[in-house]
Amino acid sequence: MRIVVVGAGINGLLTARELAQANVEIMLCDQGDLAQQASWAGGGIVSPLYPWRYAPAVTALSRWAQAAYPNLQRELYDSVGIDSELLTSGLLFVNPDDARDAMVWAQANHARVERVDHAHLRDRWPGLAHDADTGVFFPDIAQIRNPRLLKALIADLTRHSHVQLRPQTAVIAIAGARGHASASVTLASGERIEADAIVVCAGAWTAKLLARSALPIRPVRGQMLQYQVAPGSIPSMILRDGHYLIPRQDGLVLCGSTLEETGFDDRTTAQAREQLEAVAATLWPGLTAQPPVRHWAGLRPGSPNGIPYIGAVPEQPGVWVNAGQYRNGLVLAPASAALISDLVLSRQPRLDPTAYAPLAPD
């Protein structure tokens, strides 16, 4: 069996890995360098932001994926010696106006959670802004160093003789199976490649490639800043008013992110830099003592309610999709890859696929 996976972000890489473990011949292609879009640009929080505000379909994927990440990190380290730095640093939600909902959700989903009053907030997070009054702390939420995870996945895939990695290989057309013809992709070079299945994991570019299917996936730009502080200065990840800080073990701190409807423009802007510097000051004022050391942007695959499309593409036999994870591409990736692989290989799905099935176009 031969499968072409289109798109080499976190979902494409993990999908290719799942399929390769079933001894399927894989060609993984990307229009640019491998793993250089939203998966690289994101922060690496292994949880949806405000998880209690998401639909059950997102929760099902995220809870499955969170349980899978420790094994994935260990397997990759044993395989290629790259440490993805999966760290259970916990996530503090500052001044949430729906803390009660968070507590109810946590109880229903067996997640540890703590209500933190003003005194304890000051004691445990002394660098918070003065108007931080209350908090909700999820101690078991982890983070992962996403660029290192992507590097580890690429290195792991290169170990398989039946996996072909093709960066700088743009797909311009996808055709489903017809009669005796297999599904196929046509490359910008003019080359046509046939396969038993095509799996589109092209993130924000998915709707372009599957235009006939009218999937409502759009690019949403996110910009990030990076600071450098002494390791351990910030004791956990912090989220307030939709913005976050992610402290790495080596003292790098990520501050993000913006939500911008700018089409496929992935450039950074001075306006967003100023906005994020102001955000950093409201989250942890001490960060502003030094200027940011880095500023970048990426394009997320936006989708309605953040529910991804995972399944067979209607009216295109042999064509499948795994895209539209929006702000949770990395969070949901192990579960998304497991589900699409089960479906493509006609195995019993490890999760109920019903909520993620792409709809036929009107």
Score class of each variant (00 low, 15 high):
Met1His: 14
Arg2Trp: 11
Val4Gly: 02
Gly12Met: 01
Ala16Gln: 03
Arg17Asn: 14
Glu18Gly: 07
Gln21Met: 11
Ala22Met: 05
Met27Pro: 03
Asp30Cys: 01
Asp33Arg: 11
Ala35Lys: 03
Gln36Tyr: 04
Ala38Pro: 03
Arg53Thr: 13
Ala55Leu: 10
Thr59Asp: 09
Ala60His: 09
Ala65His: 04
Asn71His: 15
Arg74Cys: 12
Glu75Val: 08
Leu76Cys: 03
Val80Pro: 05
Val80Lys: 04
Gly81Thr: 07
Ser84Pro: 05
Glu85Gly: 06
Leu87Gln: 15
Leu91Gly: 07
Phe93Glu: 13
Phe93Asp: 13
Asp97Glu: 13
Arg100Met: 08
Asp101Ser: 14
Asp101Ala: 15
Val104Arg: 11
Trp105Phe: 12
Ala106Ser: 13
Asn109Cys: 06
His118Phe: 12
Leu121Val: 09
Asp123Val: 06
Trp125Pro: 04
His130Val: 08
Ala132Cys: 06
Arg148Lys: 13
Ile154Ser: 00
Ala155Glu: 02
Leu157Cys: 02
Thr158Met: 01
His162Asp: 07
Ala173Lys: 08
Ile174His: 00
Ala177Val: 02
His180Trp: 10
Ala188Val: 04
Ser189Ile: 00
Glu191Gly: 08
Ala197Gly: 03
Gly203Ile: 00
Ala207Glu: 00
Leu209Asp: 01
Ala211Lys: 10
Ile217Leu: 00
Pro219Met: 00
Arg221Trp: 04
Gln226Thr: 15
Gln228His: 13
Val229Thr: 15
Gly232Ser: 10
Ile234Asn: 03
Leu245Gly: 09
Leu245Ser: 10
Ile246Lys: 12
Arg248Met: 11
Asp250His: 12
Leu254Gln: 14
Cys255Leu: 09
Ser257Met: 12
Thr258Val: 09
Glu261Met: 07
Phe264Ser: 10
Arg267Tyr: 07
Arg267Pro: 05
Ala272Asn: 15
Gln275Thr: 14
Thr282Met: 10
Gly286Phe: 08
Leu287Asn: 06
Leu287Trp: 04
Pro291Ile: 02
Pro292Thr: 08
Arg294Leu: 08
Gly298Ile: 03
Gly302Asn: 02
Asn305Thr: 06
Gly306Cys: 07
Ile307Phe: 01
Ile307His: 00
Ile310Asn: 01
Val313Arg: 00
Pro314Ser: 08
Pro317Tyr: 06
Trp320Asp: 03
Arg327Gln: 15
Leu330Met: 15
Ala333Arg: 11
Ala337Met: 10
Asp352Arg: 07
Thr354Gln: 14
Pro358Ile: 04
